[in-house]
């Protein structure tokens, strides 16, 4: 878990076949979050590298009641920290992973 206390990992192997990734996010260090959240529950979701933004997904997670508004920035940051390296890898090696 980065300094956000949240862990984001690939829920499925990234085969570069399309722009969507399956990601899984969960709370690894509850002390680092400000608001209420669901402990010991992983949230799996798809993230489209071309159309989605981490902020938008974080907002939807707050709206769905998974996290408190005060933690949406941390959720967005943990998603961004995971998807940015994948985006960069794909830009360097468009021929696929």
């Amino acid at each position: 878990a980065e300094d956000t206390g949240l862990r984001v990992e690939l829920a499925e192997e990234d085969d570069c076949s399309n722009s969507s990734l399956a990601l899984r996010l969960w709370v690894e260090d509850p002390k680092k979050l400000k608001g209420k959240h669901k402990d010991n529950e992983a949230i799996e979701f798809s993230f489209n590298l071309e159309t989605d933004t981490p902020e938008e997904v974080a907002y939807e997670m707050v709206k769905s009641g998974f996290f408190h508004e005060s933690d949406s920035k941390a959720v967005a940051k943990s998603i961004r920290d995971r998807v940015t390296p994948i985006k960069k890898t794909r830009e360097k090696k468009p021929a696929g992973c």
Binding site: A1, N40, A42, I43, E60, M61, F66
Partner: peptide
């Protein structure tokens, strides 16, 4: 499984399931 819950928000699907025990031990 009964432990998995699906939530939809703005057209996005979130699948909520217990964090695998092995991952919790890592933390």
């Amino acid at each position: 499984s009964s432990l998995t819950q699906v939530v939809h928000s703005a057209g996005r699907r979130f699948i909520v399931s217990p964090v695998p025990e092995s991952r919790l031990r890592e933390s």
